[in-house]
Write a protein that binds this DNA or RNA. Sequence first.
DNA 1: TTTGAAACATACCACTTAGTATGTAATGAG
DNA 2: CTCATTACATACTAAGTGGTATGTTTCAAA
Lengths: 195, 195
Amino acid sequence: MRKSEQTRLSIMQTSAQLIYVKGYQSTSIDDILSSMQVTKGAFFYHFKNKEEMALAFIKELMYPGMRMMMVEPLLNSKDPIKTISKQLKDILNNKVHFDMRYGCPMINLIEEMSPLSEAFSNSLKMMTLTWVNAISDCLKRGQANGQLRPDVNTLEVANYMVTGYAGARNMGKIFGIKSYQSFLKQFSFYMESLR
Amino acid sequence: MRKSEQTRLSIMQTSAQLIYVKGYQSTSIDDILSSMQVTKGAFFYHFKNKEEMALAFIKELMYPGMRMMMVEPLLNSKDPIKTISKQLKDILNNKVHFDMRYGCPMINLIEEMSPLSEAFSNSLKMMTLTWVNAISDCLKRGQANGQLRPDVNTLEVANYMVTGYAGARNMGKIFGIKSYQSFLKQFSFYMESLR
DNA sequence: TTTGAAACATACCACTTAGTATGTAATGAG
DNA sequence: CTCATTACATACTAAGTGGTATGTTTCAAA
C-alpha cells in the first residue's frame, strides 16, 4: 500500500509538469507515460480516465500548493496592504514554481478548461475563490485596524487583485519579465490609494 | 478569382469561430471542414497547413478587427481617461463579438499558443502592442492637454490596462459577468487617480 | 469553342489518441 | 507457506489526426 501510492503521486506530478507546459488537451497519456517509468496499465489502474486524473491532481496537489503559497502568507499580517503587495511580487518573481513562458498552472487551466468542462470549472472556481476570500479577509483585518479606508469593498478589491494577477501571467507570456515589473508598480499605486 | 476568395475567407471565419470556442490545438481540420460545405482539397489548396491558416486568419481577420474595435475609438478623444474607461467597459460588455464563457480570442491565443510557437507569439505580440501603443498615445494627448498628471508613465499605464483586460477575460470564464463589473469599478478608481 | 490552369473533391496513409482486454508479478493477511 | 487481492505490464483496438496523391470540375483567356 506504500509503493503504489508513490506511483499514483508520480503520475500526477509528471502530468502536472507536462500540462503546465503543453496544456491539458495536448498532453497525451502516452506523453505522460513515456516521460517516466510507468506503463498504461498502472495509469488506468489508479485513474478511471484522463479527466479524473487531472481533477485528482488539481484537488490533491494544486489546491494544497495554492493554499501554502497564496493563502498562508496572508494570515496574521500586521500591514495588509504591504503584505498583499509583497505577496503578489513574491509570486510573480518566484522562479522555482513558475516559469514566465508558461504562466501560472491555475490560470492556464481556467483559460483552457473552464469553458469545456463543468467539473474543471467548479474545481478551479473553488480554488480561486479560496484565494480571493483569503485576500478579502486579510484586507478586512486591516480595515478593523484602521489601516484601510472603511468604505473599501474588500471582496471587490480582492477580485481585482486576482484579476490583475491572471492578466499579468498572460501578458508575461509575450512580453516577459518587464510586464511583471510594470504591472506591479501600477498595482501598488492602486493599493496605496486604498489607505 | 472571386468565388475562391470567398472560400478562403469562409474557411478562416469558420476556423476562427471554432478556435475561439475550443482552442487552436483541439480544433481539428476535420472539425472545420465538417462544419461547413468545404472539403480537405479546398483547405490545402488555399493554405499550406493548419498553422499557416491560423496565422493568416490572425493577420487578415483578427488584426483588422482589433484595430477597428480597440484602436480607432481612441483616436481624436477629448477626455482620454473617460474614453479609455469607456472603451474597456464597451469591449467587456460587447455580446456580439464576445462570449463571456469563451473570453477574448486574442487573449486565448496568447495563453495557448505563445509558449508553443514563435510565429504565433510574434503575431500576437505585435497585435497586442498595437493596442497598448494606441492607449499610450491617447493618454499622452491627455497629458499634453493637462487632463493627466505629467509624471504618469503612459506606456506603463497602457500595459496595466491591457493586463487588467486579459485578467478580466480569464476571471470572467469562471465568475461570469459579476467579475467584469467588479473589475471595471476598481479599474476606474485607478484611472481617476491619474488625473 | 478549345484548353490549360485554377479550384476544388475523394480516397487514402502513417501516426497518434484514449481506452480496453488480458495477462503476470508483487504483497500482505491468515 | 498460501493464496487472493493489489498493482502493475503488454498488446491491442477503434476512432481521430494532419497531410498527400490523384483525381474531377470550373472558368477565363485565346
